[in-house]
Design a protein around this nucleic acid. Structure first.
Lengths: 225, 225
DNA sequence: TCAATCTTTACATAATCTTTACAGACATTA
DNA sequence: TAATGTCTGTAAAGATTATGTAAAGATTGA
């Protein structure tokens, strides 16, 4: 699954170049020229990393970084700016930035820093085997007590999302942003619930008394393992 | 508690300056002039972060970084070097480095990057454990004296509000604004009191003589710890 | 086209929230 | 002191909302 980035920069040319380069290195990139547009993107999908230019027309970059970290503490932020003074850098890091790159920058260095950030935030897991449930993310194979079960793409993505966030309550809102993202799915839709039932029927011994995916009423679901 | 760093650099002067500066900013710094000495330090203590110069007399820095990451994957490594070419940086990040600083560097920037790295490796505390009451906000689990209790969403939110404002008197008006917000709840409604009673019944040993959530007559409630 | 998958719909059931009613505690006032 | 009013504790019933689940319709890709 490709990593989703959000690039916020007021310079349309830089955006275009960055997006092209990131996609060349196998990232998926959404772009926004203003903070307002960035918020719209964040309303529907949660990126794995945000690249943030400090000079936006509609907001102070340092303040925006603080807001981002307050609302999405887990998403790493790389600051991108022409300001190269030490005090600027210090302020950037203090506002919660995970890295700070000075323009003009080399694309390869940016890519390397993006990878370093992502590596840190999500310890890549290719295989998981716990409590009778084996998952091979590369081969798309799921086994329950040794026998392979056949999952549809959405079911597999859902399971992956749960395993990556195991033992945490996941809201339907979070699932919607992560798995539906760009496509529209109304908040009152029961689609997520239905997929979840299908997944339960395939991996749970007794779907009506789930062992792995438990319901947390009013909050969402939790993958327990 | 002070963060412990390990600084590895073959230049004794730089080591001295770095150590002094780091201690000025409230870090504790062990130093080593060679990879052999660094290994000795690692044998007796695990630092929270390693600052690694790439040009050591007894080993290639890139290789050393790989070894470090293989043995201590959780300890962040900041590379420090005079080599400033993009390919050097890319190699550095690929060998597992978490950040890369080019000499000569500004102390303040180094400090800022050290802080950013440490902040990242120790995510904000999402668990509270006080006086026999444990709360895990991510997993939505509440335990009283070791045994898990089952809270409804409103009860959980209420408890969270109390814990976040512990030892402060909270008015019903404040609770209403925080948990009900714009939805209508008349000021004469007893709903909040009822939820609070339910919460007491679940977390207090003796609900009629509450230990955690005490009533402040005429004012509201207070979470005591 | 077909088959697989995704989404919507509808309804049953479960869980939660809110109201209501009354009892007791406490302070105030006649 | 007794009467009164206000505030809080508590149980129970009713109202509301959330979730489980099957089945039908829509979409997609080969």
């Amino acid at each position: 699954m490709k990593k989703q980035l959000l690039v916020v920069d007021d310079d349309a040319d830089i955006l275009k170049v960055l997006k092209a380069n990131l996609e060349l290195y196998d990232f998926q990139a959404a772009t926004a020229e203003t903070w307002a547009l960035a918020k719209e993107v964040l309303d529907v999908q949660l990126p794995d990393l945000i690249i943030l230019d400090l000079t936006l027309p509609d907001g102070d970059g340092i303040e925006i970084c603080r807001l981002l970290k307050a609302e999405y503490p887990k998403i790493p932020v790389i600051m991108l700016t022409a300001r190269d003074s030490v005090s600027d850098k210090v302020m950037g890091f203090e506002s919660g930035a995970d890295d700070y790159i000075v323009k003009p920058f080399e694309t390869l260095e940016l890519i390397a820093r993006v990878r370093a950030c992502l590596r840190r935030s999500v310890p890549a897991e290719r295989k998981v085997s716990i409590n009778g449930l084996e998952i091979d993310f590369d081969a798309h194979i799921v086994r329950v007590k040794g026998s392979e079960v056949d999952l549809t793409p959405k079911e597999f993505d859902l399971l992956q999302l749960f395993v990556l966030n195991r033992n945490e309550v996941i809201s339907r809102e979070f699932i919607r942003k992560k798995l539906w993202g760009d496509s529209k799915l109304y908040s009152w839709s029961r689609t997520i619930d239905v997929h979840l039932q299908h997944l339960r029927q395939k991996i749970e011994k007794n779907p009506s008394a789930p062992e792995y995916i438990v319901t947390v009423p009013g909050k969402g679901y939790k993958f327990r393992m």
